[in-house]
């Protein structure tokens, strides 16, 4: 048993960045194709990151380098806990810590746009928090324990009873991971297409590490969507993997459906959706099943 968990943890640490990069590549390609553009190939994020790493460390590396590394550590820790079959709540907490340290790194670096991005990322995390915990509670109510081991191996598929939570989870991470959902980006020149406001003031190496951290985070979030389908049988794992790829495709489309809602409305709708749908779904499970 121990060897199996160590193997799965090692597999996560090695393969997670590539899986995350390919998922980011799929989202980028789909969103480009939806706009009519012929976006680069799927492995473009990997080559972008390697190109950045090849350029070595720049001059303004300051203190934000440490915070970015700590944030990377927590994202990896979240994945390790998840694939070691430990507590689901711990994974969500580690993800939250990963983002907190990213927010500190962005606000420490001092330039206006990165502070703007830090404020945006903090709002996103606070808006997404209730939905994540609702999902964890939903799993607990369904099969009695928080441990990922039992959730993955237990009998009936968790997708149907937790449909509302699944839809909510789809919207919030999509909203959360979508680059421009809460964006306050104020372009001083109207063609300012290159301000992505978080990793903008970072040093070259820190930007690459921040990118790798976001890949780890993306794999963990997608493996939680995979958890909705997993019940140990080979068929359901295949269905789960297909569904995670589908969520990547869905995000590429959702990113282009509408302009960025201004912060306050998106914030309220995220919390409203989390509580209403979450509670209704939990009540249904508790009474019927």
């Amino acid at each position: 048993m121990i060897i199996k968990t160590i193997l799965s943890v090692l597999a996560f640490i090695v393969f997670a960045p590539f899986a995350g990069a390919i998922l980011t590549g799929i989202t980028r390609k789909i969103s480009a194709r939806a706009q009519g553009r012929d976006g680069g190939d799927i492995t473009q994020p990997i080559s972008d990151c390697i190109a950045l790493l090849q350029k070595g460390r720049g001059e303004n590396s300051g203190i934000q380098g440490y915070y970015v590394k700590v944030s990377l550590f927590f994202n990896v820790l979240a994945g390790v806990l998840f694939y070691a079959g430990m507590d689901l709540l711990m994974t969500i907490a580690c993800l939250g810590l990963g983002i907190i340290f990213m927010v500190i790194a962005a606000s420490v670096s001092g330039t206006y746009y990165s502070r703007l991005g830090a404020d945006r990322l903090a709002r996103e995390m606070v808006a997404a928090a209730p939905m994540m915990f609702m999902v964890a509670i939903g799993f607990y109510v369904r099969c009695g324990s928080f441990d990922v081991k039992d959730l993955a191996m237990s009998g009936p598929v968790a997708f149907l009873p937790l449909l509302g939570l699944f839809a909510g989870y789809m919207l919030i991470p999509c909203g959360k991971l979508r680059r421009s959902s809460f964006e306050y980006r104020m372009p001083h020149a109207m063609y300012q297409k290159d301000m992505n406001s978080i990793a903008d003031a970072f040093d070259r190496k820190d930007a690459a590490i921040c990118e790798i951290g976001s890949w780890y985070e993306k794999t963990v979030l997608y493996s939680i969507t995979y958890l909705f389908f997993a019940n140990g049988t080979l068929l359901m794992t295949a269905v789960g993997v297909v569904c995670t790829v589908l969520t990547a495709v869905l995000q590429g489309i959702i990113e282009n459906i509408e302009p960025a809602a201004d912060g306050r409305r998106a914030f309220k709708s995220a919390w409203l959706w989390a509580f209403v749908i979450g509670i209704v779904n939990l009540v249904i499970i508790y009474i019927i099943i």
């Binding site: 009519g36 976006g39 473009q44 063609y191 300012q192 290159d194 301000m195 930007a207």
Partner: peptide
């Protein structure tokens, strides 16, 4: 900007527009 837009789209050739001169090739 027309190069970045769907008409020509240099992203398919591997070019990426960035806002930080220290990243630039």
């Amino acid at each position: 900007i027309a190069c970045l837009s769907p008409g020509w789209d240099i992203e398919r050739l591997g070019f990426r527009n960035t806002g930080n001169p220290s990243y630039a090739d």
